[in-house]
Amino acid sequence: MAKRNGLLAAALLLLLPALGAEGEEFLPFLFAAFAITWVAFFAYAFFIARKQADLKQEIEVLRSLQDKDDDSE
């Protein structure tokens, strides 16, 4: 938990010089907007990739069953 807060503070500090001093109190909003967007995109891409891998495996299994059926006929 402490580590995560540290990372957050570091990220904010890193961005500060680029942003100039004005409106600092709104920095968390900016950070949240970008963080939520990126987390959502990565989560979605990850979900798709994993599902694709699962289905690929299942297709292989079903296909081998199909081949066995064809052989026995």
């Binding site: 004005e22 409106g23 900016l30």
Partner: peptide, 8 residues
């Protein structure tokens, strides 16, 4: 006018 939050 809007400060840093405009970057959103």
């Amino acid at each position: 006018v809007l400060g840093v939050s405009q970057r959103i």
